[in-house]
Computed example of a mutant assay.
Amino acid sequence: MRLLIATDAWHPQINGVVRSLEAMAAHAPAQGAAVSFVTPRGFNTLPMPGYPEIRMALATPGQVSRRIDALAPDWVHIATEGPIGLAARAACLAAGRPFTTSYHTRFPEYLAARAPVPESWSYAALRRFHRAGRACMVGTPSLARELEARGFTGLVPWTRGVDTALFRPRSHACLRGQRPVFLCVGRLAVEKNVAAFLALDLPGTKVVVGDGPARADLERIDPRARFLGALTGEALARAYAAADVFVFPSLTDTFGLVLLEALASGLPVAAHPVTGPLDVVGDTGCGVLDRDLREACLAALDVDRARCRERALLFSWEESARQFFGNIRAAAAPQARRGSRDSPLASSSAR
């Protein structure tokens, strides 16, 4: 199978969408597939309003259609709802080419945090976007329930994985600062709720890994907190392994790959009981979920780090790829009908 993935999220962005798509491409040969991408690269771009680090492609359906035709894929998967995704959707519909989609980001909440746009309007647009595909992949059961309650249909599961060889306990890892060390990793933007973490009255040291448009404002909340900037690879893995608690303050993430990276490193999680933490941590004992994030942080200091590692070992990129390509094969089957898809997460969908 030759699969083309259309995505607005791509390098130099550092986020869970990019990592997930890269992992699918890496594991495609084992699933009998070869993956190519249509990304903002090669198009004229403009900075995203309020987030200039992210460039938005000025892509037309005709331009994307020509790229699709040149790559001659057997199937198209549209990963994002930005300009590339919209152009790919229009091109596929015009050509009568079926496709699948995936839901990664709560754009309605993110947009409402920056502009006076009702979430109901944005969700209506997203329902229409995804309903045109044969299936919409979602990362967790709790997210599927939320989307179903909002009228989304055709939802199928696509879990995520973690590189347990890179992210692992390390006996010699260290972070400067008074113990305990509370670590937060993620994009420094308003929707990640990092300000709530920095405002907590906690013993020891707060460490923040990541970068983004809110960094200057966040640094003023707690001048004692250490900001390490964006880290990847071994440097990021060492930071996880050296901390005492991983703090995940987000209320809007749809999964949170950083949760798996922390757990694989033997790092207990403190988070709110919301989508992502409920699915990854839940009542497994590898972290503490509490609406009072400070109480969760302090209680997580007593969590058995070995249990965290054991939990992470249940998530692999191999299983993630098996689900992803299985969803595509099911959607591409001759009996699959556009916009109508039985699945463990939803019964049917209509275009």
Score class of each variant (00 low, 15 high):
residue 225 A to S: 13
residue 229 G to A: 07
residue 275 T to P: 02
residue 281 V to S: 01
residue 273 P to M: 07
residue 295 E to K: 15
residue 247 V to C: 07
residue 265 S to Y: 03
residue 258 V to R: 04
residue 285 G to M: 05
residue 278 L to W: 01
residue 286 C to F: 01
residue 275 T to G: 00
residue 224 R to N: 14
residue 262 A to D: 08
residue 273 P to E: 10
residue 241 A to K: 03
residue 311 R to T: 12
residue 322 R to A: 15
residue 288 V to P: 01
residue 274 V to N: 03
residue 219 E to V: 03
residue 272 H to A: 14
residue 277 P to D: 11
residue 223 P to V: 06
residue 219 E to N: 02
residue 247 V to L: 08
residue 219 E to M: 15
residue 310 E to M: 08
residue 285 G to C: 06
residue 234 E to V: 11
residue 314 L to V: 07
residue 301 L to F: 06
residue 218 L to F: 12
residue 269 V to D: 07
residue 242 A to T: 03
residue 286 C to I: 04
residue 293 L to G: 00
residue 246 F to M: 09
residue 277 P to T: 14
residue 276 G to F: 01
residue 302 D to A: 14
residue 252 T to A: 14
residue 244 D to I: 03
residue 314 L to D: 14
residue 255 F to H: 14
residue 275 T to Y: 00
residue 246 F to L: 13
residue 311 R to Y: 02
residue 276 G to L: 04
residue 297 C to W: 13
residue 252 T to K: 09
residue 288 V to A: 03
residue 320 S to V: 05
residue 294 R to E: 15
residue 233 G to L: 13
residue 236 L to F: 10
residue 221 I to L: 15
residue 318 E to D: 15
residue 307 R to Q: 14
residue 271 A to I: 06
residue 285 G to F: 00
residue 308 C to G: 05
residue 288 V to F: 02
